[in-house]
Write a protein that binds this DNA or RNA. Structure first.
Lengths: 194, 194
DNA sequence: CCTACCGATCGGTAGG
DNA sequence: CCTACCGATCGGTAGG
């Protein structure tokens, strides 16, 4: 990352703290300290604490969307698309762990307008996965009753990864992605349809 | 539930608020208001705010453990055990939604000693599922490389349910449990082992 | 269970 | 980016 701008240092500090202690348990003084300044000086770079949260979520949403959307929109075989999409998702989680955790877990933090915007971002990403599964069903490659519930299971499985993933752990992103995708394919695409 | 004791009314109010807005965003005044008293009066019933959180988590942990443990320890066929365990888990989630959400999602809230106790409770429950899967592997009914990662996928899938479940929704606990368990069996127990 | 209140800390601002 | 500070609200207490 090298030495980025102060603004991005602040955003990174906030993302780390929000993802570790939660948004409300993190004070602007915590954030300032981690960025190496005093709390009053934060406001030369940001509007307020909540704007910081929104920026983090937007960045994370963007990374997930731009990683997975081209895969879903491509015309490769559906099984390859699922494999690649899982790999892309795991890649974003493991590369941007703090942001991903906030994007995927901090729903309760938002209220009112902020919540609507947040949910819209998440829904857009979830719709990507819904489309992927529907494509497989329409091509008769996937074979499941209730594709909607199946999508919830798939997304839940993926959205759990950031909770137990450790950078120093035995499980590399590649191993996680390859096993997960083969298992999910096994689930969606039974050996003998009908 | 009828008219329970004031203490349990307070616990229920807190569980609802913690699960909806998060622990730190909930004030003792919020809790008192929902329990129909003033904030100072809370402390005739509870030690402090954090003790309330711990009690909620302990109750939820207890419900999950006592629902699933007897199933894992029984000597029924492994596939039936998995089906029943999924049903039991979904039952607790849908019956005690607020407590389950806090138990399964509020990890970041805890610090220091409280966190250790919390993680121990969660680990005990996760170990139950690890045992169930290992039993299936040892009996050669389940057939997976990396049972540890498979357990993480299974638990992630289960632990996602409380996030999208709605009491008034189309998906009843029975439907969710039966589809989830058949899918997870399909994943763990491929049609043609080797 | 209420009244009355506390010290601490919070997010944020003014003026430089 | 700092110094100095603010009003508001927080969790919790004393005394009845």
């Amino acid at each position: 990352m090298a030495r980025a701008s102060k603004k991005s240092e602040i955003v990174e500090a906030a993302a780390y703290l929000f993802s570790t202690k939660g948004y409300h348990a993190t004070t602007v003084r915590d954030i300032a300290e981690r960025a190496g300044i005093l709390s009053g000086s934060l406001y030369a770079h940001i509007d307020n604490k909540e704007a910081l949260l929104r920026e983090i979520v937007k960045q994370a949403a963007n990374q997930f969307m731009s990683a997975v959307q081209p895969i879903v929109d491509s015309d490769r075989p559906i099984a390859a698309k699922l494999t690649d999409a899982v790999k892309a998702h795991v890649g974003v989680v493991t590369n941007s762990l703090a942001g991903a955790r906030i994007y995927l877990d901090e729903e309760a933090t938002f209220t009112n307008e902020g919540r609507q915007e947040f949910l819209a971002l998440r829904r857009a990403y979830e719709n990507l996965w819904a489309r992927l599964i529907e494509q497989g069903v329409q091509q008769s490659v996937f074979w499941i009753e209730d594709p909607h519930l199946a999508r919830l299971l798939v997304l839940s499985a993926l959205n759990g990864i950031h909770r137990w993933y450790r950078t120093e752990g035995r499980l590399t992103p590649e191993v996680i992605a390859s096993r997960y995708s083969s298992w999910l394919l096994r689930l969606l695409q039974p050996a003998m349809p009908n």
